[in-house]
Amino acid sequence: MRRLPVYLLIDVSGSMTGEPIESVKNGIQLLLSTLRKDPQALESAFLSVITFSDRVTQVVPLTEVATVQLPNITASGGTSLGQALQTLTETANKEINKGTSSEKGDWKPLVFLMTDGQPTDSVERGLQAFKEGKWGIVVACAAGSGADTNLLRRITENVVVLDTCDSNSIKAFFMWVSSSVSASSKRVDSGAQPDTLNELPPPPEEISLLKF
């Protein structure tokens, strides 16, 4: 059966210490508990969490939402966004069943990237690799005013902004992620995959959609 892979790419650099990182952890828990009461998501959605600071770590390999266990996540160090994109692409390549002419593969993955600052590594190579991958909807979230929205815009046209990096905003973001995954899994459940942000539920007021 086809799976709907969902990748969360989370900035855990030093600037996320305190309220932001705690809010992210609560947000992912909220995301999971919501999806666990949604029959479409329970059937098809698989979640992976990749964190990046100085290092990039896949803290949750692609796992069905029913059994995901979230390890403790701590914030420290820099923001290796380029390496994160590289790792995401390589990991997805390994984890996703691409299908053949005689077998249907998985659905294209959804990617939700959240960062609060400027990358501290070079992003070009990772960005290049990422651009060559096959993705479903990719959303980049600039948490607070420190993130480089122009750079995020090069990753995806779907950039959303949280004005502040507080617990309410971060919670609202993950609620929106959960309704987006729900909506996507409902659609793939019926054979169609959304490919633009317009096909997802509108974000709540805490989140503004960046328009160019």
């Binding site: 299908g99 002419s101 005689s102 077998e103 249907k104 659905w107 294209k108 054979g191 169609a192 995959q193």
Partner: peptide, 15 residues
């Protein structure tokens, strides 16, 4: 009707 027959690698056409 959801069997294993593949008509296209484009999910929309397949659907």
């Amino acid at each position: 009707l959801r069997g294993s027959k593949v008509y296209s690698d484009d999910t929309e056409i397949q659907e």
